[in-house]
Design a protein around this nucleic acid. Structure first.
Lengths: 202, 202
DNA sequence: ACTTGATTTAACCATCTGGTTGAACAAAGG
DNA sequence: CCTTTGTTCAACCAGATGGTTAAATCAAGT
C-alpha cells in the first residue's frame, strides 16, 4: 500500500481549521485540500462528501464545547467550591480553542435540527442535570440562596463563553491587543466566580 | 415612471431576513429576490452588488445591537438604578430581534476588519466610556465595590446577549418550548440585575 | 517479475452563483 | 402621439463549486 496512513488525520486537521474559520457555508473543499496539501479528489475518497467531513468536525467541536462541563460537575465537592472550579476549568478549556464556540453556536443556529441528535448522545448532560438538582438541594438547605438552577447555569455559561464569541467586538471597542485580552480572560477565571457566589449568598 | 417606490425598501426587508438567517456566505441573491417577490436583476439595479446589500443590512444590525446600549446610559440616574434599567431595556430590545446578535457576532468573527470602520462612527461609544468612568467614580466613593468597569460591562452584556445566541442549544438541552424560553428571558430582566447588583454591593 | 489492492492524481462534469445585457413596459411631459 | 426616463424582466455569461472518473503510482505478497 502507498503513502502514510495519517493522510486521513491530515484531512481532518485541515477541515477543522477551514470549517471553524469559515463555517459550513463559507468553507470550500478546494481550501481544505490546499490546507492539507493534497488533491481535492482525495477528500471524497476518504470522506464521501462535504457534509460528512463537516459532521465529523462539528461533532468534535460540539463535544469540546459542551462535554467539558461534565468533567468537574460530577466530582464530590462543596457546592461553592464546585462552582468556582467549574468556572475556572471551563474558561481555561475554552481559551485553548477560542474559535470553537462561535463556530458551534452559529452552525446550530443555522441548522437547529443538528442539535437534536447530539443532545441525547452527549454523555455530560446527566452530570448537568445532577448538578442542577444539587443546586436546588443546597438552596432548600439554606447553604445558598434559592434560585432557578437553569438561570444559574445560564449565567455561568454566558459569562464564560460570551467573551470569546464577542472577542473582535471587545478588542475593537476597547482597543485591547491580544495580550490585554488574554489578561482580561485570565482575570475572569476568578472574577466570574466572585459574581456568581456573591449572588448565591443566602 | 413605473411601479411603487417602495421596491427599494421591499428588497432591504427581504435581504435583512435572508442575510440574518443564513449569513453572508450562506445567503443567495436568488433567495433574496424570491423573498422580495421580484427578479434577481432588480437587486443589482437598486443595489450594485451582494456586498453593498449586505453592508446595509449589517450596518443596521450592528447599530441595533450596539447602539441601543447608549440610550439609557447617558441619562442621569443613581448608578444602581441605571444598571438595572440598562439590563431590563437591553434584554427587551434584543428580544424584539433575537436573531440579530448571532448574525452580527458571526460576521464580525468572519471579517474582523469590518468592525474597525463601524467602531469610530458608532454614536453610543462615548456613552459607554462615560458609563465606565461613572462606575470607577462610584467605586472610589464607596457607593459600589471597586471593580474593573470593563469586566462589569462584559458581565452585563454577556448575560443579556448570550441566551439569545445559544437559544437552540438551551431549548435543546433543557427541552424548553418557545413559551418557556420567553418566560426564561422575561425572568432574566430582573434576575440579571440582581446578580450584578449583589456583586457590586460594597 | 507480476499481481493485487490501496492511494493519488489530472481532467472532467453538471450545477450553481453573482452579475450583465438588451429589450420591453409604464407613465409623465411635451 | 411621441419622447423620455425610471422600472422590470427573461435570457445569458463566466467563473466557481461539489463531486466523479479513469488512469497512474506505489508497496507488499506471491
Amino acid at each position: 500500500m502507498a503513502q502514510e496512513r495519517n493522510t486521513e488525520e491530515l484531512i481532518i486537521e485541515a477541515a477543522r481549521r477551514i470549517f471553524i474559520k469559515r463555517g459550513l457555508a463559507g468553507a470550500r473543499m478546494q481550501d481544505i485540500a490546499d490546507e492539507a496539501g493534497i488533491n481535492k479528489a482525495m477528500l471524497h475518497y476518504y470522506y464521501r462528501s462535504k457534509e460528512k467531513l463537516f459532521e465529523i468536525v462539528f461533532d468534535e467541536a460540539f463535544s469540546k464545547m459542551v462535554g467539558r462541563l461534565g468533567a468537574v460537575l460530577n466530582k464530590p465537592m462543596p457546592i461553592e467550591e464546585k462552582i468556582r472550579t467549574l468556572i475556572d476549568h471551563y474558561i481555561t478549556s475554552i481559551a485553548e480553542t477560542p474559535y470553537v464556540p462561535i463556530f458551534v453556536l452559529n452552525e446550530i443556529n443555522q441548522q437547529p435540527e443538528m442539535m437534536i441528535k447530539r443532545v441525547s448522545s452527549q454523555p455530560s448532560f446527566p452530570d448537568i442535570m445532577a448538578f442542577m438538582k444539587e443546586v436546588v438541594e443546597a438552596g432548600k438547605k439554606g447553604i445558598i440562596k434559592e434560585i432557578s438552577p437553569l438561570q444559574l447555569f445560564l449565567n455561568i455559561v454566558s459569562m464564560c463563553i460570551f467573551p470569546f464569541v464577542a472577542r473582535p467586538l471587545i478588542q475593537g471597542i476597547f482597543q485591547q491587543d491580544n495580550i490585554q485580552f488574554n489578561m482580561l480572560i485570565e482575570e475572569r477565571k476568578k472574577l466570574v466566580g466572585d459574581v456568581i457566589i456573591s449572588w448565591l449568598k443566602p
